[in-house]
């Protein structure tokens, strides 16, 4: 059973998208990142890179620190008073994890999509136009951004006749795609997805997975997922977290096919998690 499961991952990987032969351009490099919640050491000494135009999946059992680490990358842990993040997060040679740098400005360039679809209690149009407008986009630019972003996430045809209806009228899957559209409207370089499909049905999930594969042409993507098949289907690199440690980080194919650590093997074969 064990070897079969691994074998299935492998074939799925080969069928859907063979490992691209691309040069690795580093988009973001995390060095010695630690996170403390009060006295709890939640993320321990993580060293990890995100490569340009690739999808990196963070997997691991609940509470392993993968979401916490993801939230370091756009300084969202700043919003939790008891959290302390140390280490360096380098983007274009600049350490983003220093208090002198404005977290607001950083988040502008790193989009985030959350576990539960969280569209604003505003119209579909406003959901997307809201943040760009605050950064000075004109009325015409906003209109164009809305259409462009909705086209990209494949939502345009579904909602173009009701752009000024509340976003809460959309289904869960549509809401999540709207949230992705909202993130890409800011034209970020990196998009972080925190278990974006865990609240969705299988059809919506597969739509979002297709979308992620589409989006990596323009963006660098990091995705936290509970679903190992999902990681195998859509990611180029996979990082396995366990108890706050980064146990293994490799090409997805390699990690699923030939894991080097015993903990990875145990997790992949379902012995825990």
């Amino acid at each position: 059973m064990t070897s079969q499961a691994v074998f299935q991952f492998q074939t799925a990987q080969e069928n859907i998208h063979p490992l691209p032969q691309m040069e690795q351009v580093t988009q973001l490099e995390a060095k010695q990142v630690n996170v403390f919640y009060g006295s709890k050491h939640a993320v321990k000494d993580i060293h990890l890179s995100l490569y340009k135009n690739s999808v990196t999946a963070f997997i691991g059992p609940s509470g392993c620190g993968k979401s916490t680490f993801l939230r370091c990358l756009n300084r969202m842990n700043d919003t939790i008073p008891s959290a302390k993040v140390t280490g360096e997060i380098m983007i274009d040679g600049i350490n983003m994890n220093q208090s002198e740098l404005n977290a607001t400005q950083i988040r502008r360039h790193i989009g985030m999509v959350f576990q539960k679809p969280n569209p604003f209690m505003k119209s579909i149009f406003e959901n997307i136009a809201f943040a760009p407008r605050l950064y000075g986009a004109s009325k015409a630019e906003c209109k164009q951004l809305v259409e462009e972003s909705l086209q990209k996430v494949g939502l345009w045809d579904e909602v173009k006749d009701r752009l000024h209806h509340s976003a809460l009228e959309l289904s869960g899957g549509q809401q999540q795609r709207l949230c992705i559209a909202r993130a890409i409207a800011m034209k970020p370089s990196i998009i972080l997805l925190d278990e974006p499909t865990s609240a969705l049905d299988p059809i919506s999930t597969s739509k979002i997975e297709q979308l992620i594969l589409e989006l990596k042409k323009d963006f660098t993507i990091a995705i936290v997922t509970h679903n190992m098949q999902q990681a195998a289907r859509i990611s180029d690199y996979t990082a396995f977290f366990y108890m706050g440690d980064l146990i293994e980080f490799n090409h997805t194919n390699q990690l699923f096919h030939q894991p080097s650590q015993q903990a990875t093997i145990d997790y992949l074969t379902g012995r825990f998690g």
Partner: peptide, 27 residues
Amino acid sequence: VPKEQTEASLALGVTHWQTIMKVILPA
């Protein structure tokens, strides 16, 4: 007002004050 609304806004690079005025107060 659900915390997710605030998170969504902050994650877009909107400041805390703008989030309060334009996202939280209307809701």
